[in-house]
Amino acid sequence: MKFLILIYSNPKSRAIWETLTDAQQIEFGRSHMALSESLAASGDLIVAEGLADQELARRVSVRDGKTITSDGPFAEVKEYLAGFYLIECESMEGAVEIAARIPDASSGEVEVRPVLDLKAELEM
């Protein structure tokens, strides 16, 4: 089963980030790198990425065949996606264990979502 672990940035997590020293921030980044490498080596990782600043985001919609985009920043948005891990795991319990190793879980929280599957279960 695949699970997506979502890391959100919100006012609380940003406030915590601001209190960290440079050395702590670097250590935080290293912890992410180390976790990605360890999950890749065990074959559990599918992909993990950190997302660029929300200011660089663009919203896209198509109306009457026309593509309309609007630029950030979206000042009204308090919480936005900052990064994600897509992992493969046998159960939600296993996915939660991996999520608990994400540095952001120690300061704030991360969200684990099961990915929908194309296969159906066997009927017995």
Partner: peptide, 14 residues
């Protein structure tokens, strides 16, 4: 299994 080749490669080498 709809996963990247590198994932399977790692599982096998592990």
């Amino acid at each position: 299994f709809l996963v990247p080749e590198s994932t399977i490669g790692q599982r096998i080498s592990r």
